[in-house]
Amino acid sequence: MRSAWVVMKRELGSFFVSPLAYVVLTAWLVWNGVVFWVLTEFYARNAVSSGAASPLSAFFGGSSLFFIPLLVFVPILTMRLIAGERQSGTIEPLMTAPVSDASVVLGKYCAAIVMWCVLWLPTVIYAWIMRQHGTVDWGATAASYFGILLLGSYFMAIGLLMSALAPTQIIAAVLSFVALGVLFTVGIGEFVFDGAAREFCAYVSMWGHMQSFSKGVVDTRYLFFDLSVATLAVGLSIGVLKARRHT
């Protein structure tokens, strides 16, 4: 596990000295700043009619505005993880170092989770802003962040898997975008289908997931779904690296 830590430190170090990190973080904050501003304006001008009860809970999952940037930013953050090493050739020294495939993958995955947290950390300021002008449901806010962490654990795992599969970073980004886009769209099927299909779509729905958490409801079904997808994707990534030795 010590080697996973070494891999993670290198990954984060390289990310945070790259211009990409700051372009992504700035773009992310600009986007979310605009979303948050529009939502607060909306709630200030309209009496709350339905759905999310506050701008904060609307921000954390009441609107599809939450997911659209994620579908783009997650692939950009995860594309380099393994495909980047493959493209630059550094995968060879990495895979010939005396470390297990699992610790390489876990190190990369933990680095991705830290990136995810760094992405979200500045949004705590929105809660602080709301506190200046009214009351904040801290329980629901904590649940929202917990939901975000769970969501990230499986988004990043999917991005990691695509990066393990793809020969280049661009292909990794496209594959993750498609995978997340399909999952998001399947979730919308909740409003389309009936019966078992509806149940299934609701279960997969990231929208429903975040709506639930943003109201302060920690639903163990979502918890189970997120963690099993994350475990599966990380496990498959290890398998992909192992298989690559046999080609």
Partner: peptide, 22 residues
């Protein structure tokens, strides 16, 4: 072709590899 992490400094890279190799 000696693939290396281009964004790292020489001593940083060697430290990283040293740690990786225990």
């Amino acid at each position: 072709g000696v693939p290396l992490y281009r964004e790292m400094r020489v001593y940083e890279y060697l430290r990283h590899r040293g740690a990786l190799k225990n």
